[in-house]
Each structure stands twice: as structure tokens, then as C-alpha cells.
């Protein structure tokens, strides 16, 4: 028995508390959700629950509400992930350059991220208020037509996307700044000596070396966007006319408003499968192009 083998039990012992917490609060509930999804579940009296097999999944996949909510989720992801990613990258690049007041600007960009979503989304509800809100006031001032924002089927989702970008951009910017700071200045200097302009330097040196960071941000923001709930809960309650009913929000409605526990559990499992598949796909595609120093 070598020293590694001898130390192995102690290592497991040190890992045990974290493992136990993970098992109790994540792993076991996850399996329990899978189990519940096979039942017409009575959460108040589980003795009245009846086994229905995959019926809950069948009903969900055959319901227009499921596909509608998935489409809405993808709309939200499309509005927040690519836009947020490139916006964050641009801001991070700008914030890496020295200028007066850089510290304050960095703080201003990051601070929305640490604010509570419920509190700030309530502030944004007032900003979006069609009659008394700041945004319509600004539109009115420049003689542009006022919008219904959160009361409008067309503008409710862009409104939530705008809020989400404002709130979450700071995190992505910090990650990109961390990624940029790991790129050796020698490589950029070498490119410049070879006659590269700023764009060529970015495209041929910075961007390829930043791919692991971009991949991380892409995966994290995609997962986050598909799980987004709080801003929909406070700002739109899925409305108007289900225009912002994402899969996560519908899951909340089914589970905690209408107490259809079995279908809600099945939806949670489906959402997990979708997010896991998308993440695996992103990793597979991006790994092929990722460049590690």
C-alpha cells in the first residue's frame, strides 16, 4: 500500500461533510423529483398518489403550453446570452485600458450584479410603467411613441431582457477581465512588432486565447437564462397573455400555484435534460475551437 492509498480514507472523510450536504439538499431531492414525475402526486397526502408511468411526460410533450414556454425561454436566452456576451466582452476590453475614473466605472458596471433581483426589478417595474415611468417619459421627450412595456405582448420580453442585461452584465465583465489579464502582454507586443493593427491583434491573439473564458461565460449564462425565474415572477408573472411564461416560470405555476406536482416534476426533469443537452453541445462545439495557452 503506497502513501496515496493510505491517505485516501482521510481524504474521503474530509469530503464527507460537503458530500453529505450535496446528497441531502441536491442529489436525493433530484432523484425524488424523478420519482414524483411518474405519479399523479398528491403532495398533501402521498397515500392518494397514483402511479402513472410516463403519462406526465406524454401530456407535457403533447401540450402546446410546453412548446410555447420553451420558445419563450429560447427567446429570452437569445436576447440575453449573445448580446450579454459581446457587450460584456466589449466593456471588459474597454475597462482594461487605463483612464481617469476607471475604478468608479468598474464599480458602476459590477454593482447591479450584487443588488437583489426582487428589489431592483420592482424599481424597474416603475421605470417601465406606461403612465408614470421614466422610459416612456424619455420617449415622450424625444417625440417617440410611448410603449406599453410590461403591459404589452410585444414589449414585455424585451423589457425583461433589458433589465436582465443591466443586472447580470457585471459578472460577465469581471470574468472577461480576469480572462484578459491572463493573456501575456508579450504575445500582443509580438503581434504589434509583426505589424498587426488593433483589430488584427484582437482577432488573432486576444480572441483565440480568450476562448476558454468565452466558453465558460457562454455555458454559465445559457444555464442561467434557462433557469431565470425571479425577474419574471416580480415583473410580469408570465404575462401578458403568457408572453413571458418561460419553462421555469411555468414550472413554478404548475408546482406552487396550481399544485399539479406530478406534471411539474416531469417538467423539471425535462428542463434538466434540455439544459444538460445544450450545455454538452456547447462544450463539444466550443472545445473543438478552444485554445489553451
Amino acid at each position: 500500500m503506497d502513501s496515496t492509498d493510505r491517505r485516501r480514507p482521510a481524504a474521503y472523510l474530509y469530503l464527507a461533510p460537503a458530500g453529505l450536504v450535496f446528497a441531502v439538499f441536491t442529489l436525493i431531492p433530484a432523484f425524488y423529483v424523478l420519482y414524483i414525475s411518474l405519479f399523479n402526486w398528491n403532495f398533501l397526502n402521498s397515500a392518494q398518489s397514483t402511479f402513472v408511468g410516463l403519462k406526465n411526460y406524454g401530456h407535457l410533450l403533447g401540450s402546446s403550453q410546453f412548446w410555447h414556454s420553451l420558445l419563450i425561454s429560447l427567446y429570452f436566452a437569445a436576447g440575453t446570452v449573445p448580446v450579454g456576451l459581446f457587450l460584456a466582452l466589449g466593456i471588459a476590453l474597454a475597462l482594461m485600458n487605463p483612464f481617469t475614473g476607471r475604478g468608479f466605472v468598474r464599480l458602476a458596471v459590477f454593482s447591479p450584479y450584487v443588488t437583489p433581483v426582487v428589489a431592483t426589478s420592482i424599481v424597474w417595474i416603475w421605470i417601465f410603467n406606461p403612465q408614470f415611468g421614466l422610459l416612456n417619459g424619455l420617449l415622450h421627450m424625444v417625440h417617440l411613441p410611448e410603449l406599453g412595456w410590461l403591459q404589452s405582448q410585444r414589449w414585455a420580453m424585451p423589457g425583461v431582457i433589458l433589465y436582465t442585461l443591466w443586472h447580470s452584465l457585471g459578472f460577465d465583465v469581471i470574468i472577461f477581465m480576469a480572462g484578459l489579464s491572463t493573456i501575456s502582454a508579450d504575445l500582443r507586443e509580438a503581434a504589434r512588432i509583426d505589424g498587426a493593427n488593433r483589430w488584427q491583434e484582437f482577432w488573432s491573439v486576444t480572441w483565440p486565447l480568450l476562448t476558454p473564458t468565452t466558453l465558460f461565460v457562454l455555458i454559465i449564462t445559457t444555464i442561467g437564462s434557462l433557469q431565470a425565474f425571479t425577474q419574471f415572477f416580480t415583473m410580469t408573472a408570465g404575462g401578458p397573455l403568457s408572453a413571458t411564461t418561460t419553462t421555469s416560470y411555468w414550472l413554478y405555476e404548475l408546482a406552487f400555484l396550481f399544485y399539479r406536482t406530478g406534471p411539474a416534476a416531469a417538467l423539471a426533469v425535462l428542463l434538466f435534460v434540455i439544459i444538460a443537452t445544450l450545455t454538452a453541445l456547447q462544450m463539444w462545439l466550443a472545445q473543438k475551437r478552444a485554445y489553451y495557452q
Binding site: I28, F31, A47, S49
Partner: peptide
């Protein structure tokens, strides 16, 4: 054993 425990919990006492 986890799943058995979970299932057991699911079939707990009812009011």
C-alpha cells in the same frame, strides 16, 4: 438504498 429511502419517504403516513 437512497432510492428505496426516497420511495419509502414518498409512501409516508397520510393524514
Amino acid at each position: 438504498s437512497t432510492l428505496v429511502g426516497v420511495i419509502g419517504a414518498g409512501c409516508g403516513t397520510a393524514p
